[in-house]
Amino acid sequence: MIERTDPWIPESYHIVKTWREIPDTFTMELKPTDGREIPRFASGQFNMLYVFGVGEIPVSISGDPSQRGILTHTTRAVGAVSRALCDLKEGAVVGVRGPYGSHWPVAEAMGKDVVIAAGGLGLAPLRSAVREIVAARERFGKVSVLYGARTVEDILFRRELEGWRARFDLDVYVTVDHADAAWRGSVGVVTRFVARAAFNPEQVVAMVCGPEVMMRYTARELEKCGVVDDAIYLSMERNMKCAVGLCGHCQFQQFFVCKDGPVFAYHRVKSLLAKGEI
């Protein structure tokens, strides 16, 4: 009988550091317990994180792919497993399977303008891509980061966004849905910023991540600006349980979001996104 690696077995990692980013969202840095390097991953991929005895959830990788010593995950504490994960202290052990799924088209975007549009927690998987782009900034054209959050308190990675904004070679637009007069920034939905971003619609790659409705309307705004639908990429969320296309939960018509996605070129999913309950 052929020896096969068992796709169901998580690897042990220690939590090196864990902190709250915003009220319901936390980041943790993980290291393999046996001291080896973390597996190579690409921006936009995800891991399955296991909390002993509680369960397993998909979490996108929010760290820099070139950083091989540490695995960084950011997620929201909303379900039983993510809450348990959030409650774990530094030094605790978690199980990790992955990385899985498709990734952002960072390599394909080289030589072109880039529009990164994120909503809410959608900035987490896109942060990897932005870090990658910033690390090789000269290889890209104009780069715009559009980010929408619910309130000022919900702005994820605020310090890093400010750092990006301070750079002369990134156009960063941050907007919130709800604010009072103390907020000195923009208020309104992130889709409104697409038309304001500077890019050549014929030479651009757009990467969009956020709630499905936000992604759909951002894609439509991009199309209105002349961007073709195969230059727009979205990251889909579905119920991913096994992460390897065997459990069936994350099906989106012919796609298994866990292995065919989560990152899809918009033209592949456009007609399905408009239908609902697919």
Partner: peptide, 17 residues
């Protein structure tokens, strides 16, 4: 129209967790 469309999306409170 553009502001109304944006307002409608805004009203959906998309990032409400």
């Amino acid at each position: 129209i553009e502001r109304l469309q944006a307002t409608r999306l805004h009203a959906l409170d998309l990032y409400n967790t």
